[in-house]
Design a protein around this nucleic acid. Structure first.
Lengths: 249, 249
DNA sequence: TAGTGGTCTAGACCACGTG
DNA sequence: ACGTGGTCTAGACCACTAC
C-alpha cells in the first residue's frame, strides 16, 4: 500500500493516484457507505475534471484491492462483508477436501478491560486504554474447530454490547461496517503451531497436549489503521488453513 | 484479424485476453525464456495488429501475476526466481519481529522412487511413475527451522542429479527454471499443526512430541500444471508463517 | 539521442441491467 | 430506450535507461 501517498505529499503523484486517494478519502469519511453505489465513471470525470481513462485506472486499483466492486450495467459499489466473495476473504479454513464451509459462531465471553503494552502497541492506542475482549467458538458442520479471542479498541466501537454480537445475522466484520462505519480491508496474520492449553483442548474436543494452529491477526481499515486484534486456535485434525500463492484471474 | 491457434474456447474472449494467452503460449514453449526481455510494446502492436492499449492491458495482467516484470526505460522481462522480490514470494517464514531472512538449504537425502496413489493424483501423473524425493533442512540465521520433503515427477526433470542440487547457488525454483525450463508461478498451500515425529524433532532441535507447523504445497507452472509436491515441517518457536490478506499494489 | 515503459486524453462501440 | 461499466483505438507527452 502507499504509505507515502497517505502522508499528504501526493502533489507529484500520477493523476490517477491522486484521484484514487480522493476517492479513498470519501470512503474514509463515510460519504459513500458500504453497499452504496459511487457516482458513475462519466459523472466522476466531470467532478474530478479528468478523462475517463484516468478515473478507470483509479477504480481499477481500488477494485483490485477489493475496496470497490464493479458490476457491469449497474454501477460501482462500496464493498460489503455480506457478499459471498468476501465472506471467505478473511476466513481461510477449509475441510480435508479443500471445501470452504461457513462457520457458525458462538460467543463464549464478552469483557471490558484495559490494553496491555503489547495490545496497545499493535492497535496504536495508549497503554491502559479501554478495550473489549470477545471470545467466540466457531463450529464447522456442527463440530467445534476454532476459538477466537478478539480485542477491539473501545473508543472505535462506542455502544458495542454483548447483545449486538449475540443477535447479529452476518459476519462480525459486517457488524463493524454497519454499526460503526469501520470497513476492514486488510489483515496481517502470523501462524504457528502450539500445544493447546487445557481449556482450549476441552472446548475443541481435543486430548490434552494436542497441537493446534495458532493465528495472530491484526485487521486494518483505510490508511492501514489497525482496528482489531485476533488470536485464533484451530483444531486442524479435519481442517486446514488454505493459502494460494499466486494469481488466477 | 488473423488469430488462430488460440487454443480452446477463447475465440470469443476479449481481444486483450487472447493477446495474453498468446503471450503465455510463447512463454510456455520457451520462446521467451526467464530473464530475457520480450519484444517492446510497440513491436508487439505490429506483431499482433492491435493497439498499444490492448497490449498494455494484457501485459498488465501478466505482471500482476508476477509472470512478467516491467522496467521503465529498459523493457519487459520474463520473471526469474533469482530476483529479490521473488525469493520470498514462495517463502513465507519470518522471525519473531516479522523480518524475512533468506534460508540456507542443506540436503538430507535424495532418492528415486515410484509415485504412490496420492502423489500421482496430485501431480497428475500415473501411479507408479518415476518420481524424485528430496529432503532438505532449512536454516535461518544458522538455526534449523524447517524440513522440506520434495516430490518431483522425474519425467519433467530429466537428468536431475544430487550434484546439481548440492552445487546450486540460488533457489531450487530457479534451478527448475534454468535447468529444466520449468517456471513455477503459483503454489497452493494447506497448513496444519501436528506433533513432530522423533526424527523431525531431533533435526529441528525440538523436544519429542513438540508441535510443528505442517505445510502441504502443490506448485504449478503455466496452465495450472502441477510440477512439485512439498511437505514442510516448521519449528515455530521463534518464527511464524506470515500471510497478508489484502493487496499491496 | 534513441528506445523503452508510464501517464493522460478523447472518442467510438459493445455488453449488460433496469425500467 | 437509457445508463452503466467493458473494450478498443489513436495519438500525445513524460520519465527513465542505455549508449
Amino acid at each position: 500500500m502507499s504509505d507515502i501517498l497517505t502522508a499528504g505529499n501526493l502533489s507529484f503523484a500520477p493523476l490517477y493516484k491522486r484521484v484514487k486517494m480522493r476517492i479513498m478519502q470519501r470512503l474514509t469519511v463515510g460519504e459513500w457507505k458500504p453497499g452504496e453505489a459511487i457516482p458513475s465513471e462519466s459523472r466522476l470525470t466531470e467532478e474530478f475534471q479528468v478523462s475517463i481513462g484516468t478515473i478507470r485506472k483509479a477504480i481499477d486499483e481500488l477494485s483490485a484491492e477489493k475496496i470497490l466492486v464493479r458490476e457491469q450495467g449497474r454501477g460501482t459499489f462500496v464493498a460489503t462483508h455480506t457478499e459471498d466473495r468476501f465472506l471467505y476473504y478473511f476466513f481461510r479454513i477449509v475441510d480435508r477436501n479443500g471445501v470452504k464451509i461457513f462457520p457458525q459462531s458462538h460467543m463464549l465471553s464478552f469483557r471490558r478491560m484495559r490494553a496491555d503494552a503489547n495490545q496497545a502497541e499493535r492497535l496504536q492506542i495508549t497503554r491502559g486504554a479501554r478495550v473489549i475482549r470477545i471470545s467466540n467458538l466457531l463450529k464447522l458442520g456442527g463440530k467445534p474447530v476454532e476459538i477466537d479471542e478478539i480485542i477491539l479498541p473501545a473508543e472505535r466501537f462506542p455502544g458495542l454490547t454483548e447483545e449486538m454480537l449475540l443477535t447479529r445475522s452476518s459476519t462480525i466484520y459486517h457488524l463493524y461496517q454497519a454499526q460503526f462505519g469501520i470497513n476492514v480491508i486488510r489483515a496481517a496474520e502470523k501462524l504457528h503451531a502450539v500445544t493447546a492449553d487445557d481449556e482450549t483442548a476441552r472446548i475443541l474436543h481435543l486430548q490434552k497436549g494436542s497441537p493446534v494452529l495458532g493465528i495472530a491477526r491484526v485487521a486494518y481499515t483505510y490508511n492501514n489503521l489497525p482496528v482489531e486484534l485476533r488470536n485464533s486456535y484451530v483444531n486442524t485434525d479435519d481442517h486446514d488453513y488454505f493459502n494460494d500463492l499466486g494469481k488466477s484471474t
